[in-house]
């Protein structure tokens, strides 16, 4: 996910992205941003945060822990906001979605 400074709420998106660097996939030991699991983070005027994200596989055994982690990290960073997690498998995750840092951590 690339955040452009010209986007609305760019400062908040960058702050959210920073928070999500702390959410680690327990199996791969890489954070959800560098894994490329987060497709979009949207803010609105009613203090709603909508995260569009995926998992490395449908029914991933760690799926609940990862989505809980995303919710918890954003709730701590943005108190009083409502967090919505939108899971999608379109497009399906693949290892092309890893960032350079994610590739380095996995030894790709």
């Amino acid at each position: 996910m690339i955040v452009s400074l010209a986007q609305p709420y760019a400062d908040k998106k960058i702050k959210a992205q920073q928070a999500l660097y702390n959410v680690i996939d327990p199996e791969l030991f890489v954070n959800v941003i560098d894994l490329g699991l987060i497709y979009d983070i949207a803010f609105d005027e009613e203090n709603n945060i909508t995260v569009t994200m995926t998992l490395s596989t449908p029914h991933c055994p760690m799926g609940e822990a990862i989505t809980n982690g995303v919710r918890n990290a954003l709730e701590m960073t943005f108190p009083g906001h409502t967090i919505n997690i939108m899971l999608t498998f379109e497009p399906k995750w693949n290892f092309e979605m890893l960032t350079e840092e994610g590739r380095a951590q996995l030894g790709v």
Partner: peptide, 12 residues
């Protein structure tokens, strides 16, 4: 076992 102990604490 990790899931049972930590899935709700992840990110917190």
């Amino acid at each position: 076992v990790w899931n049972a102990h930590y899935k709700n604490l992840s990110g917190k």
